[in-house]
Design a protein around this nucleic acid. Sequence first.
DNA 1: AAGGTACTTGCTTGTTTCAAACAAGTAAGA
DNA 2: TCTTACTTGTTTGAAACAAGCAAGTACCTT
Lengths: 195, 195
Amino acid sequence: MLDAAVALIGQRGTAGTTLKEVGEQAGYSRGLAGYRFGSKEGLFGFVVKAVGEEWLRELTAVTRDKVGLAAIEAALDAHARFLAEAPEHVRAFYVLWFEAIGPRSTLKGVIERVHERRRRDVLEWIARGVAAGEIDPELDTGAVADHFCGAIVGIVYQWLVQPVDRARIEAMHETLKLTMRRLLPAHLPSEEYTP
Amino acid sequence: MLDAAVALIGQRGTAGTTLKEVGEQAGYSRGLAGYRFGSKEGLFGFVVKAVGEEWLRELTAVTRDKVGLAAIEAALDAHARFLAEAPEHVRAFYVLWFEAIGPRSTLKGVIERVHERRRRDVLEWIARGVAAGEIDPELDTGAVADHFCGAIVGIVYQWLVQPVDRARIEAMHETLKLTMRRLLPAHLPSEEYTP
DNA sequence: AAGGTACTTGCTTGTTTCAAACAAGTAAGA
DNA sequence: TCTTACTTGTTTGAAACAAGCAAGTACCTT
């Protein structure tokens, strides 16, 4: 059922996807999808949660035992890989993500929580980088985290618009790494001059 | 008719907006909106074009006679102002913008052109900054422009999710300015050491 | 110039089609 | 017998389209 929904969202978009087709493509009757999920929005919520958890597992795996810039770069690498291998799941996830911003969207809450979670992760990586002495403690970490999360959204947007241009997407991840290196200056830069 | 559409998109979202209501709220019959614009998508396309041109006029006005970082910062100030004054128009515009990424969206073409136009503007500002000798000509300007446009999308996304938190939105614009200053280094940095 | 006719424009109303939502049912198993 | 998993029937409502109407506007004829 999940796979059918993901495939249809990828092909026809959310407006073009019907509960009837989802049910039938999954090998059931026309009515099952509506019955199980209550409504179209209910189905979409299920898809977002399922794929979101998939990504979360991936992310925690690659950032385990990493702090500061290393964690951020590992996360970016994993993200680029996730998009490049582009299982349709990710595409459906982000299509739903971007549509959830409208008013009256029941998905909004779910998406907001994912977003907030991302931000806290970034803050955590930075805080640990500060603790490890590799990042300046004076920094406005909230602003940097916001910029990072926003930039990710921007990259994904670009990817959804032109998924073909893989090199460009990877370049955007690299530019974001560079940006983060510039925004997160080393702690006690004077040490750089003591050989 | 435009105002009715904008108001309804802002209140109910695109899925919740009906052609019937748009027509009636504009003081006409239930059928007019559908007749004039052919379809719901047609109406939405009209809204995007109308608001897009509004913003374009604003943008060209504030960046006239500016190059390099100055142009970028002026554009960011104008953008922050546009969001803060938040005429419903902008909200409807971006809601449609984010929904246009799905497959089978007729708006996609329009949005892609707006996006591409933005990118070319940024490249132009940078190129003029290079010509004026204030930016390093060795730079990968395409990557910087992509990052900039992506970051804008990220900011707008955040704004749509939590339009209330005005300070945060302005901070994100400031962080993006800072980022651009870091990514666009001065030309011939050695000059900085010759008094 | 006057008056009549065709054509256009802007809008309304009627009708079809199709999806969502929900209610009621059935069959297989615990 | 009760629950679970699923199907089928029905209602409601929106989109899309067709057809119609009324108020111009242009054109043509004498």
